[in-house]
């Protein structure tokens, strides 16, 4: 039997909202340590990796590892029947379940739904646990804003790191521009900008993926950008007390 209860069901809804435009069908893996998900977007340049640890749930039980194939679109249809303040419980009974049960619980209403599961044959990628040469922490809303602004000018966005901070730049047909974000150690953790740069990097990415990744900014006030030269970047949103959502994007080749 598998059972996982989110005290804050709104959080689960935010996670689904964050990934719904990146991935269509996903395998949700559950085991004794928690729930995880790994899926590539259809063009195979971006990867979504979610980890939710069992300690973050109000109630968690998973006697045997199981894989649940879900359509994100259908999952969303079910979640639309829940309130943002509901507690949400996911449950399966069988060892090889064909449905995933949902219980939405508020002060005055309990709703039950079953979502049909699918058998998905998905490639799993071995993502190495790497040390990145530049790690930047910055407000997630600021990163969202920069991507939106620079994305108007060109479809590719450059990222350059140095000991002084991080620079985003674009060069398009209409002209070019750059935004430098300065390091600060303000007392407000959500406004902090930190750069750990062992080796500077200069990389280019398709901004439209960043704009999709930024839907996850509702999960955390800070975003962590981890980069090494000529390697995929990782954009990480820490989900407080539960785990994290990591989004990987392959760099563009110099054109």
């Amino acid at each position: 039997m598998f059972e996982a209860k989110f005290e804050d069901g709104g959080l689960f809804k935010k996670i689904v909202e964050a990934i719904k435009e990146l991935v269509k069908n996903v395998n949700l893996e559950a085991n004794g340590t928690g729930i995880s998900l790994q899926a590539m977007d259809t063009s195979h340049v971006a990867l979504v990796a979610l980890q939710l640890n069992e300690k973050g749930f109000k109630k968690y039980r998973c006697e045997k590892s199981l894989t649940m194939g879900l359509s994100i679109e259908n999952l969303q249809k079910i979640l639309k029947c829940s309130g943002n303040d509901d507690q949400i419980t996911l449950r399966t009974q069988d060892e090889e379940p064909t449905t995933l049960s949902f219980t939405f619980e508020s002060k005055n209403r309990i709703s039950e739904f079953q979502l049909n599961l699918m058998s998905l044959d998905q490639e799993q990628l071995g993502v190495p646990d790497t040390e990145y040469s530049s790690v930047v922490r910055m407000p997630s809303n600021e990163f969202t804003k920069i991507c939106r602004e620079l994305g108007n000018i060109n479809e590719a966005i450059g990222i350059e790191t140095s000991k002084e901070g991080i620079k985003f730049y674009v060069k398009g047909d209409i002209g070019e521009g750059q935004v430098s974000v300065k390091i600060n150690d303000t007392e407000k953790p959500e406004e902090r900008v930190e750069c750990e740069v062992d080796e500077p990097v200069n990389l280019s990415f398709a901004v439209r993926y960043f704009n999709l990744f930024n839907k996850a900014s509702a999960l955390s006030s800070q975003v962590i950008l981890s980069m090494s030269q000529d390697q995929p970047l990782v954009i990480e949103y820490i989900i407080e007390e539960m785990g994290s959502l990591k989004l990987y994007l392959a760099p563009k080749i110099n054109d």
């Binding site: 195979h44 340049v45 799993q124 990628l125 071995g126 995929p232 563009k252 080749i253």
Partner: peptide, 14 residues
Amino acid sequence: EEYQIYLNKYFPIV
């Protein structure tokens, strides 16, 4: 994406 590299190039399929 003509000049975007696939992630499979970096991460092996397991």
